[in-house]
Amino acid sequence: MLQGINLACIRGDRELFKDINFSLEAGSLLQVRGPNGSGKTSLLRMLCGLSNPAAGEILWRGTSIRSLSGDYFAAVTYIGHLSGTKDDLTVIENLRISSALAGSEISMSQASDALKHMGLRGREALPVKVLSQGQRRRVALARLLVCSTTLWILDEPLVALDVMAVKLIQKLLEQHLQRGGVIVMTTHQEIEVTATSIMQLHLA
């Protein structure tokens, strides 16, 4: 479903990577690994369509993502380094607004169910600025529960999470793969996800 062909990335004068090839079918997970500064985040941003590869092409169901644009964005959920939450808004406002802007409006009860599932019960009405780093991460990841997208692109989703939350997320990823979803993620931790196909991509 998602295919990368001869991808290359140049930052300033430096070539971060080139000739990256992969092909992901429904239900498969791609783990991107590599040391700091090897271009993991750059690759993920490329796959989202936020930046263009210096060379090569990215195909979604056989069509270039550049020509798909809006239709492609409707199939992708990206959770990056930055939490994508507003400090001044409450937890539930953040989730509802970010879902609405991503194209799927959700009701109050759907939102509070998702937050409950992420272990944020009782914190729905707190502004995000009073939350801890791990809790903010949970707010961001709660979007995965309410979105209906096929491709998840996750940049270090497990960072700052405690053991319980890591288990929760891994379960979520497993369920998504079983439904036929596709995941591309970076992580320094070993992930314990059982899936039909787990691929690894090493950036030098």
Binding site: L50, G80, H81, G84, T85, L101, A102
Partner: peptide, 14 residues
Amino acid sequence: VDGTLEQMLLSPQS
């Protein structure tokens, strides 16, 4: 700064 703009750019709407 907080990454919400990045999310808006990924919105399927115009």
